[in-house]
Design a protein around this nucleic acid. Structure first.
Lengths: 227, 227
DNA sequence: ATAAAATATGACCGTTTGGTCACAGTCAGG
DNA sequence: CCTGACTGTGACCAAACGGTCATATTTTAT
């Protein structure tokens, strides 16, 4: 975490540095981020950088926490659809993610980047940060779904969790692209995503894909029904 | 593409350079690959490197072509299950991918890396290389599936293609991890993946996930049946 | 054997990298 | 006003970077 010196900085200066960091990470990821570029972009001296942070990883985690915080705030603006079934909740998750990508494309890119890097690294799963979209998150989601009788009992939750994670992080961008002209009105807040016909029809199709699969005649489902 | 000087190199020397490149790309990806490291790792002079290649992108594409070629050769060792339905073919694709990741983990990692980079870059889709697993590949796959009445007509093929692409590139590693002790016998060729119980049960579950989805009671499917 | 063409080499170039540190400035407490 | 603690700074460092090129070596053609 950043030093207290950094945390005591004036709002404007801190924001200046954070914005530069966001720009840098969105462009080059954690591995490609350059100290010199960050320092130049934020208008602080190199020495100050090392007084604020212990290294790039430190900055990255700080930006990630900002991203989580902003996404949480955004999520709170959409009614939470609590108590509904798991798929309604999953649909709500995707709506939040779409909005987040529209409103904060750089932070969204950074989160996706972090997710992909977490897959490669064989580092022990960071359990103290059970972030939305992570493997353990969707694993728990599916386990609960089975208990609630929303999810089929035969589903391998770990496998399903990875599938959901992949969809969550890789498909959102595609959804946003498909929004076309609706994107601008949704970004600006002039339209409610819950009432946007195009967005909802895309979500319909995606959720159907996840719920009911691809097949014309799903043999396994028939087996399940006839048990 | 590499210069003809490179292509005229002796088999051993060329392999030496290619192996070093594979190692370098698997570790650091295209963006993080270092000329100095590659040169040191392959035992050639820096000047020779620039006589063989026009740059890192050149080397990368060359390695990718080797990967595709090796995967193709591997695929040919498994009977192709032609003429069967689309999902049998899809299952076969995943089997090839698992074997490829077992036998050539570095090349596999490089391919996945290239796939992810292709998603970020807004570069025009490289149509002259319609590689397996790309967006257009699975889009065509689904379109054909609908024609063959294997895939439900309501499926948004572009959305489904991205979902399949994500699963194809992100789930294979997870499948390999889950293979546990079976992995070694499959890698060495002592066991046939088509007869490995664990591998097949994992594939069962994955294919069921894709075919029949997650839901206990897929509402959309019922709608479809009652049309 | 000789000339010509092709290939191999690593010292060297300017630039950029992450990181340090002696010094300058600021600010609060006495 | 003085002092000591905190904060800001950019010149400077060694190392690594991508890239060049004059020179040396090998191969080919005559």
């Amino acid at each position: 975490m950043p030093t207290k010196t950094f945390l005591n900085l004036s709002e404007t200066k801190r924001a200046q540095i954070e914005n530069a960091a966001v720009r840098e990470f969105a462009r080059n990821g954690l591995r490609g981020a350059s100290v010199n570029a960050l320092v130049a972009g934020s208008g602080i001296a190199k020495g100050s950088y090392y007084q604020y942070f212990s290294g790039m990883e430190d900055v990255f985690q700080h930006i990630l926490s900002i991203a989580r915080q902003k996404k949480l705030a955004l999520a709170n603006t959409l009614n939470s659809s609590n108590g509904r079934d798991m798929f309604t909740y999953l649909r709500w998750l995707f709506q939040v993610e779409i909005l987040f990508e529209l409103r904060e494309p750089e932070l969204s890119a950074i989160e996706h980047h972090a997710f992909l890097e977490s897959l490669n690294s064989s580092a022990p799963v960071d359990e103290n940060a059970p972030l939305i979209g992570g493997p353990s998150f969707f694993n728990e989601f599916l386990a609960q779904g089975i208990l609630a009788d929303d999810v089929a009992t035969w589903v391998d939750t770990k496998l399903g969790a990875h599938l959901l994670g992949a969809a969550y992080h890789l498909l959102t961008h595609q959804l946003v692209v498909r929004l076309g002209e609706s994107a601008e009105t949704l970004r600006s807040g002039k339209a409610d995503i819950r009432e946007d016909p195009l967005a909802q029809s895309l979500l319909d199709n995606l959720m159907d894909l996840l719920e009911a699969g691809l097949a014309r005649e799903p043999a396994i489902r028939k087996d399940f029904y006839s048990k």
